[in-house]
């Protein structure tokens, strides 16, 4: 079982993901340079946090054209698991693998802090170890994490039970307190909080381990 972590020139949480998945959880993890198209031998892909190509235009707007992501669409179609964290979530929405968009935080400032999250759905394997309503504490660190979508999309997300995580005290103005969503099939999860920063007791708890463990569960 090998996990691939996509590295854009502006990714900056790629090494943190490897520290969590390989250093703390023991899963072999390799880096995928943004120009490569070869995803063979990988069982799950993580799009890490960072600023992909600088994100001066709009977060993830350029990244969606990256060669590595063209292969990712096939990977998802075939049922491969994909986790987008923070900037990775933004990229997934730009790519159309997840609906909606992430815009600037309501107070227009970057926010770094630990937040309390409620498990809104345990339908998919990402959170199947939890009960609905369980609370997780994970760090957030973003300037553009305010989830937005149309009423229609929101209804669909609700109907398909695709809202995975909700903020207990909404920090950024996200619609319906949404912190993370899955696709209908359930093999793609995008979330603004950083589970890889919560896999190590010494630096801030271990509530993120379950989500990363789900990368290799079936």
């Amino acid at each position: 079982m090998t996990i691939g972590v996509v590295v854009f020139p502006g990714s900056n949480c790629d090494r943190d993901v490897r520290w969590a998945t390989e250093g703390k959880l023991g899963f072999p993890t390799k880096f995928l340079w943004h120009e490569s198209r070869d995803l063979s031998g990988l069982d799950a892909i993580v799009l890490p946090g960072g600023f992909s190509y600088g994100d001066y235009l709009r977060c993830g707007a350029i990244a969606r054209f990256a060669p590595v992501l063209q292969s990712l669409i096939d990977f998802v179609d075939k049922g491969g698991k994909v986790l987008g964290i923070c900037n990775g979530f933004q990229v997934l929405t730009e790519l159309g693998l997840l609906p909606g968009a992430l815009t600037r935080n309501a107070d227009l400032r970057f926010i770094c802090q630990s937040v309390s999250l409620q498990v809104a759905s345990n339908r998919t394997t990402w959170l199947s170890d939890h009960k609905r309503g369980d609370l997780l504490t994970l760090p957030i660190a973003h300037g553009e994490g305010r989830y937005q979508c149309s009423d229609d999309t929101l209804h669909k997300l609700e109907d398909h039970d695709s809202i995975a995580l909700k903020y207990k005290n909404n920090p950024n103005g996200s619609l319906a307190d949404i912190a993370g969503i899955t696709n209908t099939k359930g093999n793609v999860l995008g979330l603004m909080p950083h589970p890889e920063r919560a896999c190590d007791q010494l630096t801030g708890g271990i509530d993120g381990q379950g989500i990363l463990q789900a990368l290799i569960s079936t």
Partner: peptide
């Protein structure tokens, strides 16, 4: 002030 700084990145902030 410090809430606007990413103080956790690199995974070593004790």
């Amino acid at each position: 002030i410090y809430r606007q700084y990413d103080y956790q990145i690199q995974g070593n902030t004790i």
